Amino acid sequence: MTIQPGVLVVVRHGESTMNAARRFTGRMDVGLSDAGVDQAHAAAALMRDCDAVPDLLISSPMLRARRTVEVIRTDLGLTAVPVELSWRLVERDYGCLTGMAKHHARELLGPEEFMTLRRTLHGTPPPVAPDAGVLARCYTDPATALSPAGAGESLHDVIARVGPWWAETVPRLRRGETVIVVAHGNSLRALCALIDDLDEREVHDLNLPPGHPLVYDVASDGHVTPRGGRYLDPTSAHRAAEQIAGEGGT
């Protein structure tokens, strides 16, 4: 019996209210902007057109990801499809940058340090002050191994926590299942780094636009193709990714 390839559909949540304000969001648990809701609807429309019917929806437990899943699930009539939440898909913790306007962070740090903290594998923002008001709005889950909100993470740290989730998900895909995963710019950059074995330069240059489904096929032997995935609307997705890069990246 030949097993059809499994399908992994990767979706970055729609624009959040903090994204719209051009502030570092990280672990702040905020909802979608109106534009973000529209992006979630657009992602659902693209998946409907390509007949991507999932066996499972997996989401970050943060509000903006769950709201995106809710829109996709409703638009595609997937109320019978289970939704799993994984703390390992939570967004990167930006430490002291959390909630800060991006233009202010660039002025404060200088262009080189700003890009080091934002885009490289090992750049780690310093922790936020323990009494900072922003912590009250941050997602945390003491029942897991998630780091305390505000501690700061590098992308390498995020890759380390996403890795076990990916290892647990691969067997489902190898059995031919279709899985839609909805998470964040950096937790999905981490996932793509694992899937595609990206080097540091490729990680630096990777930007995933919100609301643009990225599709991978997974063979029964675990081989994933194509490298880098394929967007369902490549022209619009690449244009949106270039815009993100022009603003300093995801």
Rank of each mutant, 00 (worst) to 15 (best):
D75L: 07
L76R: 10
L76T: 03
G77T: 09
G77R: 11
T79S: 15
T79I: 07
T79Y: 12
T79V: 10
A80V: 13
V81P: 03
V81Q: 02
V81K: 04
P82H: 02
P82V: 03
V83G: 00
V83H: 01
E84I: 09
E84A: 14
E84Y: 10
L85C: 13
L85F: 13
L85Y: 13
L85A: 13
S86P: 01
S86R: 15
S86L: 06
S86E: 12
S86Y: 08
S86V: 03
W87P: 14
W87S: 12
W87L: 04
R88S: 05
R88W: 06
L89Q: 03
L89Y: 07
V90L: 12
V90A: 15
V90Q: 12
E91V: 00
E91L: 00
R92G: 02
R92F: 08
D93K: 08
D93P: 11
D93A: 03
Y94F: 15
Y94N: 07
Y94P: 08
Y94R: 05
Y94A: 05
G95T: 09
G95L: 05
G95I: 11
C96G: 05
C96F: 14
C96I: 12
C96M: 14
C96W: 13
L97T: 09
L97A: 07
L97K: 07
L97R: 10
L97M: 14
T98H: 10
M100I: 06
M100Y: 06
M100E: 13
A101D: 04
A101P: 03
A101G: 02
K102W: 08
K102F: 06
K102H: 07
K102V: 12
H103I: 10
H104K: 10
H104T: 10
H104W: 06
A105N: 00
R106L: 10
R106H: 11
E107I: 02
E107R: 14
E107Q: 14
L108A: 13
L108H: 15
L109G: 04
G110Q: 01
G110W: 02
G110K: 07
G110E: 00
G110A: 00
E112I: 12
E112P: 02
E113V: 10
F114C: 05
M115N: 12
T116S: 01
T116C: 04
R118D: 01
R118A: 00
R119G: 04
R119I: 06
T120M: 02
L121F: 08
L121I: 02
H122G: 12
H122Y: 10
H122M: 06
G123Y: 09
T124Q: 13
T124E: 07
P125T: 03
P125D: 00
P126D: 03
P126G: 01
P127D: 00
P127H: 05
P127E: 02
P127N: 02
V128S: 06
A129V: 06
A129L: 12
A129Q: 11
A129S: 14
P130C: 08
P130Q: 07
P130K: 14
P130I: 11
D131E: 14
D131A: 11
A132M: 05
A132R: 03
A132D: 15
A132G: 02
